[in-house]
């Protein structure tokens, strides 16, 4: 009887030890598998050369008043718009209008180092904040907007002369691209 009890206790201890080994091996194996998966996911993230993509410099002296160019920065288009005085005053007037994403025009011409920019020059990332199409400027034949800025042909988002969203599905204003003035006639984006 006593012997049988001892044997039973031994058996239980043995089972516990076995279970512990299985659980430990399983857990360590699972951790290893999880850690192995990460490099295979991370490799699809931008590579170092892509991340360090160079800045873009734009010569402003070539852009007449009322026109814009699309500069390419990190593979994406950037609007560099030379605004007319009328466009500027309209943008300033609308600072206090009913805005979906309220922002002052002054903040939208700010340089990325924090110092104020110039009202004539608006530097915006050219992708609609809805689903990324490139909106058409007011002087484009396909422009069908009402606020004198940009109109997105994909889903009808209508931006004003400060690039703020006024109508349509886009949730945000066109993003200001980070830029600084290198001198009076050239800027560096990025």
């Amino acid at each position: 009887m006593a012997e049988a009890t001892a044997g039973g206790a031994h058996e239980t201890l043995e089972t516990t030890r076995r279970d512990f080994i299985f659980i430990a091996a399983g857990a360590v194996g699972a951790v290893g598998t999880a850690a192995t998966i990460w490099p295979f996911i991370d490799q699809m993230n931008p590579a170092a050369d892509t991340r360090a993509m160079s800045t873009t410099e734009v010569n402003l002296s070539q852009i007449p008043v009322g026109q814009e160019i699309k500069a390419i920065w990190q593979g994406k288009p950037v609007f560099v718009r030379h605004r007319t005085p009328a466009e500027i005053s309209q943008a300033l007037r609308d600072d206090y209008a009913q805005l979906k994403d309220p922002q002052m025009d002054e903040d939208r011409t700010k340089q990325s180092n924090g110092s104020p920019g110039k009202a004539e020059w608006l530097i915006l990332q050219a992708n609609c904040t809805h689903l990324g199409c490139v909106p058409l400027p007011s002087f484009d034949p396909g422009y069908r907007g009402h606020y004198g800025g940009w109109f997105c042909p994909c889903h009808g988002s209508d931006y004003d002369t400060s690039g703020r969203i006024r109508q349509g599905p886009a949730p945000k204003n066109l993003y200001v691209a980070p830029y600084v003035y290198l001198n009076d006639t050239s800027i560096r984006i990025g």
Binding site: Q43, A47, A48, T50
Partner: peptide, 13 residues
């Protein structure tokens, strides 16, 4: 070379 140098964990893979 780019895989070895720039792609995240490219050298490992």
């Amino acid at each position: 070379q780019r895989i070895q140098r720039d792609v995240p964990f490219g050298w490992l893979i």
